[in-house]
Computed example of a mutant assay.
Amino acid sequence: MRVAIAGAGAVGRSIAAELIAGEHQVMLIEREAKQFEPHTVEQAEWVLADACELASLEDAGLQLCDCVIAATGDDKVNLVVSLLAKTVFAVRRVVARVNHPANEWLFNSAWGVDVAVSTPRVLAAMVEEAVSVGGLVQLLTLRQGQANLVEMTLPADTRWAGRPVRDVKLPRDAALVTILRGGRVIVPQPDDPLEPGDELLFVASADVEGEIRRAFSH
């Protein structure tokens, strides 16, 4: 997969290194000369340009990318990059970094964003996930805000202990996609029994999360 990353600061470089380790092709676009340091991620293609300028993106070959990540420290820049990537260059997947929580509502399909990643929200979700048992925790917003990745840990006294997955009656716009049990990742099958301490991962639209909670409350 070919990925373009707008912003070669600490965040952009870290993402690039992870993607390169996963054998993806990465292009880093940076407009500040002081942050243009190709030696820090040598396997990436580096472009010194303003990612908000259409001509610069054309010269960089953004139309050849499968994914664009807007990872600068400026929300306005990230929104413009996302919009250009989606509407002008028809990039299939656009991921944008949200720096300020107050701006999170802007990062949606209207601005070309498929996935918005808000560091404060992710950190808060990780804390909730670590301390919450029996509650539903939103981990990530997916697909232009149309669905969320949510998690629930079954408590020790759960009534669902030993009951098969098939007994779980989920709403239409929700799916149990993974069970984390100890060090195992389980793709749930109808006959698989649930156990106390299971971490259940669901993909669901936001408006049915309450129904998931109710499904496990009895």
Rank of each mutant, 00 (worst) to 15 (best):
G134N: 06
E58I: 14
A125M: 09
V203Y: 01
D198W: 00
L139M: 14
L28I: 11
D167W: 07
A85T: 04
V77P: 00
P193K: 08
D114A: 10
A10Y: 08
D59H: 11
A33Y: 06
L57N: 09
R143D: 14
Q138N: 14
V150K: 04
T178I: 13
L83H: 04
E104N: 09
L106K: 04
V131C: 05
A44V: 05
I5S: 06
A90E: 15
G7I: 01
Q63R: 09
S205G: 12
N103C: 10
L84R: 05
D74C: 11
D198Y: 00
S118Y: 00
P188G: 13
A44W: 00
L79I: 13
E199F: 00
V47F: 08
F202D: 01
L136V: 12
T153V: 15
A156S: 12
G145S: 07
S217F: 00
L84Y: 04
F202S: 00
G182V: 05
D207L: 10
D114E: 14
K86Q: 08
V80R: 01
G183W: 02
V88P: 13
N99L: 12
G112E: 03
L54R: 12
A125S: 15
L57Y: 04
L106V: 06
Q35I: 04
I15K: 03
V177M: 13
L48N: 07
S205R: 12
R13C: 13
S132D: 08
W111S: 10
I186Y: 06
V133W: 01
F36K: 02
F36D: 02
R121P: 07
N108H: 07
P196G: 10
E128V: 03
D198L: 06
E104C: 10
H24C: 12
P164Y: 05
D50H: 00
G73Q: 13
I179C: 08
L139F: 01
L200A: 03
V150D: 02
S118C: 14
L201D: 01
Q35L: 14
P155M: 02
G112V: 04
R92W: 08
F89D: 05
A102E: 14
K86L: 07
A44D: 03
V113I: 11
R159Q: 12
G135T: 10
A44T: 00
V187S: 14
L106P: 02
S82Q: 06
N148G: 10
E104W: 05
V81P: 06
G135V: 01
E30W: 02
K76L: 11
